[in-house]
């Protein structure tokens, strides 16, 4: 029997009677991490890692019943033993291990293998069946170390500084911004400025003890201090807004794994692109699947065709997650 099946509300575990990252309210929701496409309000109870809990609360509000658990701590859901294990994606992100009779399934959630000073490193969990994300399911995506990218960002700031311009680096508010801050902090980058949207998650990281570069709010209308030649992190939806204009003449960049391809860099409408991602690249996907020892792999969350075909050629049982039927 399949321990995890697709359901219109998300991934469902029949013997445990719970959902993983449901898109709508359910009875019991196990949450892999606090990104908006993985947490929805309205469920009866939420279970997530202890460092994920404050971030989930930020996302859906405090009125919901959230039960934090430690990594590796086994708890009972229906007939299953369930535990969470670090996924290396963002702070508090988890893989979900489900044990039922003598079967072990692991749902990866979003994950990466690259070192990241802002979150717990990925832990390989042996399993029979591995449900893996495939956001970057092509060999075109091969990441370089985050530190190298941070150095490039600083070189960029150095160049813009000579011209008295600010550099706005657009990146997602939760995870990417803090990873950049953590990498920059290690390089003694000085103060890095933040768009308001980045502030709450960054403070949450700070309170959970993640060392990061000094940060400060940029474009605070009440006490706007003009900054010049500084690095500012902002969410992509701030591009082209009044807020951006308030920073004066600036250079723009986007930090994302998609920036690996020239076509993407040209079409996104930023001056430049930095290739840095919190998802597994192609080699990490293959390596992780191998290390779990899984005999069956189910790929989801992305264009999985190339990965599935490659795994089959390696003699594994591999498939794409079937689309759930409408209720």
């Amino acid at each position: 029997m399949d321990l995890v099946i697709p359901h219109p509300r998300g991934l469902y575990c029949p013997p445990g009677d719970f959902f993983i990252d449901p898109r709508r309210g359910v009875q019991t929701a196990v949450i892999t991490h606090a990104h908006s496409d993985h947490v929805a309000p309205g469920s009866g109870g939420y279970i997530c890692s202890s460092r994920c809990a404050p971030l989930v609360r930020q996302r859906i509000g405090a009125r919901f019943n959230i039960r934090p658990v430690e990594y590796g701590e086994k708890f009972r859901l229906g007939g299953c033993w369930v535990s969470l294990h670090p996924a290396g994606h963002i702070l508090g992100s988890a893989q979900v291990r489900i044990e039922w009779r003598d079967e072990v399934w692991v749902v990866s959630g979003d994950y990466k293998r690259d070192p990241d000073p802002s979150c717990e490193p990925f832990e390989v969990v042996a399993c029979d069946v591995f449900i893996t994300e495939t956001t970057f399911g092509s060999p075109l995506y091969q990441w370089r170390p985050g530190e190298e990218i941070a150095r490039e960002v600083l070189a960029w700031r150095g160049q813009a500084r000579e011209c008295g311009r600010n550099c706005i680096l657009y990146c997602y508010s939760l995870g990417k911004a803090q990873r950049l801050l953590a990498e920059l902090g290690r390089l003694d980058a000085g103060v890095v400025y933040l768009h308001g949207a980045h502030l709450a998650p960054t403070i949450a990281y700070h309170e959970m003890g993640i060392p990061m570069a000094k940060f400060q709010l940029a474009g605070d209308a009440s006490k706007r201090e003009l900054i010049q030649g500084e690095l500012v992190l902002a969410p992509p939806n701030a591009r082209g807004t009044k807020w951006e204009a308030s920073l004066g003449e600036c250079e723009t960049a986007f930090a994302s794994g998609w920036m690996a391809l020239a076509n993407a860099r040209r079409n996104k409408g930023y001056d430049r692109g930095f290739v840095i991602s919190d998802h597994a690249d192609w080699n990490s996907l293959l390596r992780t699947i191998r290390e779990t020892g899984a005999r069956r792999v189910i790929a989801m969350h992305g264009d999985a065709a190339a990965l599935v075909q490659t795994l089959r050629e390696q003699g594994l049982q591999a498939e794409e997650l079937a689309e759930a039927r409408a209720v």
Partner: peptide
């Protein structure tokens, strides 16, 4: 890479030079 996979990359990138450089 298997030839089919390499060609899949070219389809995504549109430029064999880029595929070689990346992979």
């Amino acid at each position: 890479m298997a030839p089919w996979l390499f060609e899949d990359c070219i389809r995504r990138s549109g430029d064999i030079a880029e595929v070689i450089a990346l992979t």
